[in-house]
Computed example of a mutant assay.
Amino acid sequence: MPMVFGIQLLQCVLQLMFISRPIFQSCICLERYLAVVHPTVFLRFKPLRYRLACCMVEWLLMLLYCIIPTFTLSVIHVLYLLVSMSLFFLVLMLYCSVHVLCVLKQPGPGDGSRGHESRNGLKRKAFTIIVITLVFTSISHVLRVFILSPTLLFASQQVVHLSQPVHQHRQRVHHPSAVPPQTWKTAMHGALSR
């Protein structure tokens, strides 16, 4: 029983670790998107109470995501959920970042005035920061989906296999049905030919 609880606790902590970063990065991308693409909406939701409410909802969703699947879904389903959520947050961040980059490439309403060079410098700096963030975020999400998820699936299957009671493991090893059919036939043929 303690081993099962330890495995579930480890699974819960791993899920919290893997889902918290994409959620917070997505919120940062959404905030950047609102600030650049829809500045009037951003100004309406700028007060601190909206940000605190958003943070509380995020933490509630993360805790629910960690607790409910851990105790109700199998390991394979939890990994599929993790992969699908990672892909969802990757698409959301790509959408927001690409739209912000498109808006930054367009000339602003006052680009013909004296402060044109300083604004272009700020736009270039923001553009560079967003591109760098987008590249590294995309790489980390792709690595998470294609490398880390299969590794976790394999490791979780090994832990489940090792967590079985020893007497069940021994019975399965010594039972004739545990030996592959071809090996069993070969062993029987060798025993009969003596």
Rank of each mutant, 00 (worst) to 15 (best):
M56E: 05
R172A: 11
L52Q: 10
A187T: 11
C12T: 10
D111Q: 15
G108D: 03
G6S: 12
V37H: 00
G190R: 14
A178Y: 04
P39S: 01
P165E: 05
A126H: 02
R21A: 13
K105V: 13
C54I: 04
S138P: 04
S26M: 08
I67D: 00
F18W: 08
H175V: 01
T133C: 11
T186Q: 15
K46P: 00
P165S: 11
H99L: 13
I7V: 06
L122Q: 12
A178M: 05
I132Y: 05
H169D: 05
A191N: 10
L73N: 02
R21Q: 08
Q182H: 11
A53S: 06
V98L: 12
K125H: 09
C66P: 00
L64K: 03
G115H: 11
G121F: 11
L90K: 00
R44K: 13
R49E: 11
W59V: 14
Y80W: 12
K123R: 13
Q164V: 09
V159E: 04
L79Q: 05
S163P: 01
K123L: 06
M3R: 15
M56A: 12
E117V: 13
H174I: 06
G6C: 10
W59K: 10
Q8H: 15
T40K: 09
A191I: 04
V145K: 01
R32Y: 04
Q157N: 14
G121P: 05
C66M: 14
F18S: 08
Y80M: 08
Y50I: 03
A53V: 00
P39A: 03
V131Y: 08
K185T: 07
S177N: 07
L43S: 14
L10E: 09
T70W: 01
L52E: 03
L43V: 08
M188N: 08
L148R: 06
F88S: 09
R170C: 04
I19V: 15
V100K: 00
V160P: 01
L48Q: 04
M1E: 15
L87D: 02
V179I: 05
L81N: 05
A187R: 09
L90C: 02
L52G: 05
H38V: 02
T70A: 00
M93A: 07
V37C: 05
G115F: 12
C29H: 12
Q15P: 01
V145F: 00
C29P: 01
L9Y: 09
F127D: 03
E58A: 13
S84H: 11
Q11C: 09
L134K: 07
Q8C: 06
S118Y: 15
I67E: 00
R194H: 14
Y95M: 07
I76L: 14
M62F: 07
V100I: 04
V103A: 14
S113Q: 15
I68R: 02
L43M: 06
V179Y: 02
S84Y: 08
I147V: 15
Q106R: 15
C12G: 02
I132H: 02
H99T: 04
L153T: 08
I130M: 03
L10F: 12
A178N: 10
A155I: 07
R144D: 12
K105M: 15
K46C: 04
T72P: 00
Y95C: 07
L48E: 04
T70L: 03
C66D: 02
F45H: 02
G190Q: 15
L52T: 04
L152V: 03
H189F: 10
Y50E: 00
T151I: 14
H77E: 15
P22F: 00
M85N: 06
R44M: 08
L143M: 09
F146Q: 02
H116T: 11
